[in-house]
Amino acid sequence: MADFDEALTAFAAEVGSEGPVCVRGGRTRWSLGGDMAPGTREVAAPAGIVAFEPAEMTVRVRAGTPVTELHEALAGSGQRTALPERPGGTVGGALMAGESSIARLGLGPVRDGLLQARYVCADGRIASGGAGTVKNVSGFDLCRLLVGSLGTLGLVGEVLLRTMPVGEVERWVHVPGAAPDPARSCHTAASLLWDGTDLWAFLSGYGVDVDEDLSRLAELSSGPPEDVDGPPDLPPHRWSCTPSEAASFGSGNGAAGRFVAEVGVGVVHASEPQPARPVEPGVGELNRRFKERFDPAGRLNPGRDPLRKP
């Protein structure tokens, strides 16, 4: 059990124990899961890196820290986290949205990177889930429950995240005319994006392996692969599919409009929103029970509901 630092206890005091309250991060995903109930008091989580342990491959960071700022600090030691970088987006926001980075194929989903969470409960007290180590199964897994919960179960103030090494060589390439499936044999691909015509690949690894994958991509390409600064412009809406559903977008998913599919992952960025996904009644009921148990008065981020995420 740890003593909580001043920033965290001050955050808990600000959240208090009564009245509706929401957390403002970078407002990059502000409307995800519904609009904030009118009149809700806004607070901001504390910011700053508490402790980065490169040899442990973990970083303790306050939830209000921008992800880009965190990654700049980690880059000095050749590391990063699995959190997505959005301009202004915060660590807490990324965890609460639960949406993976464009390089999920290589970095994994956001949920797997959270080792410990210190958060303010609905009653204003500070709770801690998980442990300060890279492996832990002591008790029920509150960390997994919190990721993607849109701040409706507890307000995250400080987290311990797993870091991972940045590749020795990292390159984004545009591969005109390449089909997505054969590209999956590129082992260094941390991201493969496909818009129905062209492929983009983010290769990350040892130089010799990246070179091998580049020649593999060149064989799939209708023209020479070209280095680019990053992914293509992504359409605004996010679809969540199985990898094979995502691969079928090329044969015409009119409802999606223009699209960029994350090959091997199942996230599709599309110009049209994904139709509401059906939720089993039993699962809906369980979601309601969790909300009632963790926030009986419904004061945490009222108006938001992870069941209404697209």
Partner: peptide, 9 residues
Amino acid sequence: SAEPVGYDL
């Protein structure tokens, strides 16, 4: 799917 809806039950 890549990102199921609701809490990560």
